[in-house]
């Protein structure tokens, strides 16, 4: 099996949500999917989206699936609110524009909040989508075997004809990136834009990322960014590797400007605590950050750095290597 993967550079992510909406207008703004964000960007630290997803279980304990729970629509995902445009704007009175249902949560509810105390508050953006895992818990949990991983690109799909909406997958996914479509009675999730990928067009979230933060290539493509960043430079890491699903979306961890000492002097220590990043990306994050800093320093000394050149990505088109090997499936 070949595996298509994605690296998201959290330093280049500016939290603009263009990817969120690129995905939404491509896939999820109709037919019961309105509340879903197959791709979203959440501010970290925070409860995330769906709310408290990291505490909702799922994933693997060795070879056993861990219990997980289903997020609630209004409280954890957020209702895809419509608004009283008609009564607020075209009728008498001073009724303010408001959501028709009070909003309790949303995909970007904690935008720019983060943690810490002024002036040492900190936050960064974490785009999330289906990880198209090598060991998908969702696949294992489905009693109807409606979930499978494609041989040619490792994309994990929920067969929309087999799925009967039992939602074991929703609970099993430790990233909570599977959504139950109440209108269709089926579960759906990011499909890694396979209809685009099959035509050589990168995923909407990646291609339309104006921060140029996303690299897409096959893991076994040695010239590709995935292989280089994950295996060679080891600066791209999976999110919560301890969940055991072996994700194929990787993250370049975030640098941050130094925190200030009590007198306001820059401390030389990053404002995002190392511990927090270890919680998210595991112990390898230390080495990854050190490598990043070391290569930036090389550049500032005027030396060359193939790693920095790859992350800079001089040509937008070069960030995507979708071509199939000889003899691959059409």
């Amino acid at each position: 099996m070949r595996q298509l993967g994605m690296v998201i550079d959290l330093n280049k992510c500016i939290g603009c949500q263009t990817c969120t909406l690129a995905c939404k207008s491509q896939w999820t703004d109709h037919d019961g999917r309105e509340f879903m964000y197959w791709n979203h960007v959440e501010t970290r630290p925070g409860k995330g989206y769906p709310r408290d997803w990291e505490a909702a279980g799922g994933g693997w304990d060795g070879d056993s699936l861990k219990p997980g729970r289903l997020p609630r629509l209004a409280e954890d995902y957020g209702i895809p609110a419509d608004f009283n445009f008609e009564s607020a704007l075209f009728h008498e009175g001073k009724q303010p524009l408001r959501p028709l249902d009070a909003m309790q949560w949303g995909p970007n509810w904690e935008e720019d909040q983060g943690a810490g105390e002024f002036p040492n508050g900190y936050f960064f953006y974490l785009p999330r989508l289906c990880n198209h895992c090598t060991k998908p818990a969702c696949l294992a949990a489905c009693p109807r075997q409606a979930i499978y991983k494609r041989e040619e690109d490792g994309i994990v799909l929920i067969d929309q004809e087999r799925c009967r909406g039992y939602r074991y997958c929703v609970a099993a996914c430790p990233y909570k990136k599977i959504y139950f479509n109440p209108q269709a009675g089926r579960s759906e999730k990011c499909i890694f834009c396979y209809p685009r990928v099959e035509q050589g067009i990168p995923q909407a979230c990646a291609y339309q990322c104006v921060g140029r933060a996303r690299h897409v290539s096959y893991l076994d493509d040695e010239a590709g960014a995935l292989h280089q960043l994950v295996s060679v430079w080891k600066v791209a890491l999976p999110l919560h590797p301890e969940y055991g699903t072996q994700p194929n979306v990787y993250y370049v961890p975030p640098l941050s400007p130094p925190a200030f000492e009590a007198d306001g002097k820059p401390s030389g220590k990053p404002r995002i605590p190392d511990d927090y990043l270890r919680q998210l990306f595991g112990p390898d994050v230390d080495a990854a950050l050190a490598t990043l800093q070391q290569e930036i320093d090389r550049k500032s000394r005027g030396e060359s750095s193939p790693l920095m050149d790859m992350l800079i990505a001089y040509r937008h088109g070069d960030m995507f290597r979708l071509s199939r090997p000889e003899g691959g499936q059409p």
Binding site: G32, F35, R72, A74, Y77, Y179, P182
Partner: peptide, 10 residues
């Protein structure tokens, strides 16, 4: 009863 607003319920 099936409720489109309660996707976590059966």
């Amino acid at each position: 009863v099936a409720d489109a607003r309660a996707t976590h319920r059966f």
